[in-house]
């Protein structure tokens, strides 16, 4: 028995959202009478941080503290329409819609404050702490809360805004067949180091090193969290998970969590991540979001590393011990592809 070390590399250009159907999302922003702001969305937070990021985006655009912004994703029947939380589109599409809605609400906020302070709205600025001042005259000030109260009970005005983000559907050029299916890409490169046991066929991933270019990391800890969890899922898909291990034969498939294999806390792989920030022009504050590509490059990198280790090219996932052993058998044994 020999344990062979292997290293594999994969890189990825990942499209953010999809343009074919226009891919729209809407957002509505309104203030409560005490000067807090509510962002209504139908975009669902599955744990990826949609609420946190749209909250930051709204607060930054409105010019109010993050603590004074609430995000409500309660009900897609009654909320503003969203295409959904998929295609790595949330931060980009929904974030852009929130910027537009919050920009309109900010305009109403400043107009209401201008009426109270008897100045021109263009001469006002927010301090991000819940106050609105006259530029260059910081003592001429009103709080966002007092502005909201005045708007609601005196001026009869809503501090609200509507936003939609839509990239026009891309047509096919009849002459060239050319089209623009996507507008914005994120990128990553990833290296996997692993070991393959040529007697048992078992693959053990030892280390992952990755670099992700996600535009601006709007919330760096959330980005890191997604990348860690996503890479774990990538390892899981590459080596463990399947519902039909002998597809199209349905036999031997798992029927519950006992038999559905996934790596547990004891199989955690060390993962060193470099996040490269290259803000995208059409993205909200430059943020594209990590999304699905946090899992994707792990799979080809592992397949390449297995090939590098023992010369077995697995083209069916997951790369189970059985598949590795069948490959070794077909090759007449391990054929390490490079010394390292």
């Amino acid at each position: 028995m020999t344990v062979h070390k292997g290293r594999g590399f994969a890189c990825i250009n990942y499209p953010i959202g999809m343009n074919l159907g226009g891919d729209p999302s809407q957002a509505l922003v309104h203030s409560t009478p005490d000067g807090k702001f509510m962002v209504s969305l139908s975009s669902i937070d599955l744990g990826q941080g949609m609420k946190s990021v749209t909250r930051q985006i709204a607060a930054e655009t409105l010019g109010v503290p993050v603590a004074d912004v609430y995000v409500d994703t309660a009900d897609s029947d009654t909320g503003p329409h969203c295409m959904g939380s998929f295609a790595s589109r949330g931060t980009h599409r929904v974030g852009n819609a929130v910027i537009r809605a919050a920009t309109e609400a900010r305009k109403a906020l400043l107009e209401a404050a201008a009426e109270e302070l008897e100045v021109n709205a263009a001469d006002l600025e927010t301090d991000g702490q819940g106050n609105i001042h006259v530029k260059g005259a910081p003592t001429r000030t009103i709080t966002v809360a007092d502005t909201a109260i005045a708007a609601q009970f005196k001026q009869g005005r809503t501090l609200s805004g509507r936003g939609i983000f839509l990239i026009p559907p891309s047509d096919v050029d009849p002459d060239t067949g050319e089209m623009t299916p996507v507008s914005c890409f994120a990128h990553a490169a990833l290296v996997v180091d692993l070991e393959v046991d040529d007697e048992t066929g078992e693959v053990t991933v030892n280390e992952i090193n990755s670099a992700y270019e996600v535009g601006r990391a709007l919330n760096p800890r959330l980005v890191e969290q997604q990348l860690i969890g996503g890479a774990w899922m990538g390892v899981s898909h590459a080596l463990y998970e399947t519902t039909e291990p002998y597809y199209p034969d349905r036999n031997h498939g798992p029927e519950d969590f006992n038999a559905y294999l996934m790596p547990g806390p004891g199989e955690v792989v060390d993962h060193n991540i470099a996040v490269l920030e290259r803000p995208a022009e059409d993205a909200p504050f430059g943020g594209k979001g990590p999304g699905e590509m946090c899992a994707n490059p792990v799979l080809p990198a592992i397949a390449n590393a297995v090939y590098n280790a023992v010369g077995v090219r697995c083209d069916t996932l997951p790369i189970t011990p059985e598949r590795v052993l069948r490959g070794l058998l077909a090759n007449g044994g391990a054929r390490p592809q490079g010394v390292r």
């Binding site: 860690i228 996503g230 774990w232 547990g264 806390p265 955690v268």
Partner: peptide
């Protein structure tokens, strides 16, 4: 710690956090 949570499945975090 790993032993103590080995009966608990997490789909999202990758366990390390």
């Amino acid at each position: 710690v790993i032993e103590a949570i080995s009966g608990n499945i997490c789909r999202c975090t990758g366990y390390d956090p």
